[in-house]
Amino acid sequence: MTKLFKYVRESQIWKSVFRHGYPDTPRNRTLAVLSNVFLHLHPVKVRRSGIRLSYTWCMGGLTFFLFLILTLTGLLLMFYYRPTADKAYEDIFALREHVPIGVMREMHRWGAHLMVISVWLHMYRVFLTGSYKPPREFNWNVGVILLVLTLLLSFTGYLLPWDQLAVWAITVGTNMARATPFLGHEGPGAALVSFGGIDFIHAGDDVRFGLLAGRFVGEGALLRFYVLHCVGFPLIAATLMAVHFWRVRKDGGISGPL
C-alpha cells in the first residue's frame, strides 16, 4: 500500500499537478497553500484565535459554501427550466412530479434562505468584533455590496417558480419602486419632472416599468429576473467574493487583537 502511494506520488502525472511533497513539513505545508490557486486565497499561517468557531462562527465560510451549493444546484435546475410565462410553472411542477427523491429544488430553495441568514449573521459577527475598523474599512464595504447582492439574488429567484406566492411577493416588493422620489410615477416630485405640460414620469416609463419591463409582473419581468438571477448577479457576486477574500488576506488575515 505505502509502496503504491509512493509510486503514484512519484509518477510524472502526479508531479505535474502537485509541485510539493506531502504537506507534513513546514516547507511543504507552505508550498501546498502557495501553489494552489484556491488555497492561496488563504494566508500561509493564521492566528489561532481567528480560526476558532467561537470567534468567526464560520458564517463567512458558510455563506461562501452556500453560494457554491446554490451555483451547482442552480445549474442543474437550469437544465429543466424554461423562463416563459406558460412553461415556467409547468417545469417546476414537473420537477416534483417526475423526479423521484429529487432534492435539487429543495437544496436550492433552503440553501437560498440559509444564505440570507448566514450573511446577516456574518455581518453581525464582523460588527461585534469590530473587524470593520482600520485596516478593514474597504472590505466591510465590499461586504455590504455582497449583502445587497445576496438579497437581490434571492429576490430575483423568488419570481422564477411563477406561482401565486412568487408573483405576488415580487409585486409587493416592486410596488415600492412606484414611489421612488422623482423617478416613480407615484413618488414625491415626479410631477415636477415635466416640461410644457408633458409628464415625463408615468406608469409606462418609470423605474418600476424598467424593473419589470411592463406595468405589472408579466413575461417581460420573468425573463429579466431570470437573466439577472442566473447570469448577472452571480457573476458580479463571484467577482466581488474573490476581491473580498483577497482583501481578508491582504488586510492581515482574520482580525485579532494587535
Partner: peptide
C-alpha cells in the same frame, strides 16, 4: 489576545 500570539499553518 491569548490565542493570537500562536500562529498555525493553514494546511
Amino acid at each position: 489576545g491569548e490565542l493570537s500570539k500562536q500562529k498555525v499553518f493553514t494546511w
